[in-house]
Design a protein around this nucleic acid. Sequence first.
DNA 1: ATATATTTTAAGCTTTGCCTAAAATTATAA
DNA 2: TTATAATTTTAGGCAAAGCTTAAAATATAT
Lengths: 217, 217
Amino acid sequence: MTLAEENYLKAIFHLEFENGGEVSTNAIAERMDTKPSSVTDMVQKLAEKDVLVYKRYKGVQLTDEGKKLAAYVIRKHRLWEVFLVDKLNFHWDEVHEIAEQLEHIQSEELIIRLNEFLGNPDFDPHGDPIPDEHGVLKRTEKKLLSELDKNQQGVCVGVKESSPEFLQYLDKKEISIGTKILVLGKEFFDGSMIIRVGNNQFFISHKIAESLFVQTT
Amino acid sequence: MTLAEENYLKAIFHLEFENGGEVSTNAIAERMDTKPSSVTDMVQKLAEKDVLVYKRYKGVQLTDEGKKLAAYVIRKHRLWEVFLVDKLNFHWDEVHEIAEQLEHIQSEELIIRLNEFLGNPDFDPHGDPIPDEHGVLKRTEKKLLSELDKNQQGVCVGVKESSPEFLQYLDKKEISIGTKILVLGKEFFDGSMIIRVGNNQFFISHKIAESLFVQTT
DNA sequence: ATATATTTTAAGCTTTGCCTAAAATTATAA
DNA sequence: TTATAATTTTAGGCAAAGCTTAAAATATAT
Ligand SMILES: [Mn+2]
Ligand SMILES: [Mn+2]
Ligand SMILES: [Mn+2]
Ligand SMILES: [Mn+2]
């Protein structure tokens, strides 16, 4: 597997996970920021390698092998992110790009030992679950903050967006994984909210509210 | 810098360090396991980038920039080796291939923090010095075990060869960095020796003796 | 049924890193 | 010093990866 192939696999895995069923050429093209014709090329190459099933005009679906490979790359990515934050004291908004490189390092033993060294973590610094050694990614029961109603409370368990800009916004507002958030008010016209975080209360837009995952108890 | 370019730089740096002066096309080809014509190609590309000076038929010499880049790759390689051995409990004969990949990860901050995390190590697990942040590689005053005479003693400070086979041989003989070695006898015909290590004494060939670095006090 | 959207094919481009064979240059040795 | 040998460079080319545009094929929606 080349670096590009691994990145396609990851993208397809995520799309399949998000939407279920076959993944369309256009969806992959958008995600990978390439042209659909490039996707067709690549997808045919990946089908040759039996990591996905491709039917002309019908989209693709990962095989078990493909799912395993993709989940493994994601596992590596997230383990490295844990390493960077927990051991090297990086901040959660700085680790993605580096993990994007580290995820392609080839050594099974390395990942076994890294995982042990990190104490078998279940989640990465952004609250995303780490696939296990067999490529199983557990679905967590979490909802978007935007789905909460007035007076409901949730604990922040992850971010949907993990761009530095968004993460830095969260820092400014003192929101991180584990923070309790109470919805004081909700504007149904635009989905904006007033929330309480610790001793502060403030306004957030719908865009923010739908980028934060929370768990209600 | 691509991966291949970085590997050429490393090879040239080592050759220059070992032999001094210009490095010949053939020497590079042999080290990189390619044809001389491929080396000429690459060397011309590297000259374009001002990391070395190339004069047709006269060999090459790294510029300051080139030396700095090469030393930095070597620094990364050796720091990662320390990480693998000290933190992930790899054995010293297992780390080279993985470090060969990790050395190409691009992130200055990563290396700054990795270095701190490891406590600013000066040597890698094979006793090789780690270039500092400015690309300075200190020459250590060490000699080959084969240079010692009868009754001389040295402390093992490094290995010239670091193939798994050789390192495993050393393990079997209970020799590692820091081990005291006493030369009990030396055969001038073939350079073989009888040495004492701890409570054992045994025969070693010249090939072994010239693959071990020692420091005499 | 027709228009629109999606997807695939065909053809080709660029980069990277190699190679062989032939020519050029330098080194060596008679 | 000149012939021979060794080294190095050029010329030309190949293959793999990943892309792209333009045109053709297929699917979908009105
Ligand atoms: Mn990430
Ligand atoms: Mn990636
Ligand atoms: Mn090494
Ligand atoms: Mn390398």
